[in-house]
Simulated assay, not measured.
Amino acid sequence: MALLNPAGAAPTAPDGGGAAGPRVLLSAREDQLDSTLALGRVAGHLGDLRPTGWSELEPPPVAALVCDDVAATERLLTLGVPVVHLRSGPAGTPAGEAPPERALVRLHRPGWLPPPAPPARDARLTGVLAPRRTGRSRTRSGTLLLMSLWHVPDTEAEAFASGALRELVAAALRHTGSCTVVADTGLARVRAALAEHPGLRVFRAAECDPDALHADAAVFLASPVLGAIALAQARRAPLALLPPLGPAQRALAEQVDEVLPLPSADDPEDPCLWAPAAAAGPWHLLDPALDDLRGAQRVARTLRQLALAPL
């Protein structure tokens, strides 16, 4: 069970010098990009709630937010901790791992996408999980390549890393001067494939802030996962999708393509890939009535209610 404190520092008392708020435990699957992105975005709206990790030396937290990790949710419920269980990706929960009935289940799903079929049991849709800060640096430069290898077969992941990924990174370095690669899992494979490129930065998604890296990048290439698409949508930023890997990514890419004509990063020599317009993107095509970016606030509000008045 991965227990995270996305703030990266000890919790502090809220402004005004009062006592710190209730302790809430935060947990996500570190090997799943959507899961770590979702947790970080909700954590940005916790207010005076104190994010904490598990400690046998302290009383149990008053509530918990768990992203995708069914085993963590089950353990916490057994210990008597009420849980908001957030499913943050499309059709990615392995068979037999439905969230426990006692958890409050939320599902990251933009309103402009058709609802999942079949819908998760008693799950409420969140809308888009957007980053707390939607501004971008005026001096942004270089390329951010945000990729997910979660539940991708080894042979497919190896072929992508040694082929298309290597070519895209080489082109990014030539055209934009720098490149940062962020991946959720398979880091050893990725680093080995890209070892010939000195100066390239490679990070594990759970150990960095992809949203902040995106704010500083001029070019954004990403796997077709909801967290990455939500990031570009919230900032009305250009996005080119990497080739979908694995069944979950392919299913989502097909659904998105029916609504949004996002470009594909399948030709490293395409000049449009490396010099996108400042505000390029098809985001204006979305129905404003379905373009709800408040998903992270909504989940944080549910966690706050659970912390202050447990069921």
Rank of each mutant, 00 (worst) to 15 (best):
P131F: 03
R201W: 11
S178Y: 06
V152Q: 02
E207A: 15
A192M: 05
A240V: 10
A234K: 06
G186P: 00
A222D: 04
A205G: 11
L245F: 03
A205W: 07
G199C: 12
R189M: 13
R189Q: 10
R106F: 08
T180F: 11
L221H: 01
L200V: 13
G199V: 04
R132P: 01
A183Y: 01
T139Y: 10
D122F: 06
S148K: 05
A159F: 05
A222F: 02
G186R: 13
P244C: 07
L125M: 05
L125S: 10
D154M: 09
D216L: 13
D209T: 14
W112H: 07
A171E: 04
S137M: 05
R189A: 11
G186E: 01
L145Y: 00
A237R: 11
A205Q: 04
P114F: 07
A218E: 12
L194T: 08
V182W: 02
A157W: 01
W112N: 02
P115C: 08
G227T: 13
A222P: 00
L200I: 13
G135N: 15
A218K: 10
W150K: 14
H175W: 00
L231T: 15
L226Y: 03
L144W: 01
A232Y: 03
F160W: 09
A183S: 05
L149N: 03
L200H: 08
A188K: 06
R121M: 09
P224Y: 08
V169W: 00
A170T: 07
A193V: 05
S223L: 09
T134R: 15
L113N: 09
P198M: 03
A171M: 04
T134A: 15
P114K: 08
L241G: 06
R204F: 10
A172D: 04
T180K: 00
A123V: 02
L113E: 06
R174K: 00
S178E: 09
A205E: 04
P244G: 07
L241V: 04
A188S: 13
R138C: 07
V169E: 01
P114C: 08
V181T: 04
L113M: 04
F160A: 13
L242E: 03
G186F: 00
L149Y: 02
H108Y: 03
P131M: 03
L149Q: 04
L173V: 11
T180P: 01
R201K: 14
T176L: 06
A164D: 13
V202E: 13
R191M: 07
R121V: 11
R191Y: 10
L231C: 15
L149W: 02
V169D: 01
R109E: 04
R121T: 12
R133T: 15
D211V: 02
A228F: 08
T185V: 00
P118F: 03
S141H: 14
R121H: 12
V190F: 06
L241C: 14
P244E: 03
R236F: 11
L125Y: 06
D184E: 07
V190P: 00
L145W: 03
S137I: 05
M147V: 06
Q233L: 12
F220Y: 10
T143H: 05
E196M: 12
A206P: 05
L113Y: 03
V182Q: 02
L213R: 12
V190A: 06
L173F: 01
T126K: 00
